[in-house]
Amino acid sequence: MSGEVVAFWCLSAVLVGSALAVVLTKNLFHAVLWLALALTGTAGVFLLLDAEFLAAVQILLYAGGIVTIVVFAIVVTERLVGERISQTSRRIAGGAVVSIVLVSLIASAVMQRPLADVRPPMAEDLTREIGDTVPTRFVLPFELLALLMLAALMGAIYFARPED
């Protein structure tokens, strides 16, 4: 059993466990913290897949950015509502059945054909390669993305503007 396999199983356990915690915890604040853990686990998976840059982005943006925003939103809404927001679920059984059926279907679709087990050799420095590709081959999606970000920013500001 190589180190990669051990790492994969450990990371999988962390990831699945924290994800379950995210959707099952009653306390919304705790759920956000569990989400941060799950996102960090994902970053670990990225590292296993030789994508160091993406792991860094994942931690910076997700764990750093989104979690901060969500916490901020929770605080703001709780202050608006004036009470603690409890996190309850409904129709857990139905949701569980649907989810399990879904995951078994996806898994069986994945297992249906043997897929690649060997990693082909890639460039030494993947970060540099991503950096080379984005502004050349993917310049158009990149610019569109900038536009999208701007639109989202304006929309968020519009929604969150003070009441008249």
Binding site: V22, A31, L35, L39, V70, T77, I92, L102
Partner: peptide, 26 residues
Amino acid sequence: AVVFCIGFFGVITRRNTIGILLGIEL
């Protein structure tokens, strides 16, 4: 796939909108 379905479970069971958003993130 497992993580996806866990997130999906969150989306369809959570009552709180922020909770739904967390599921979508997953």
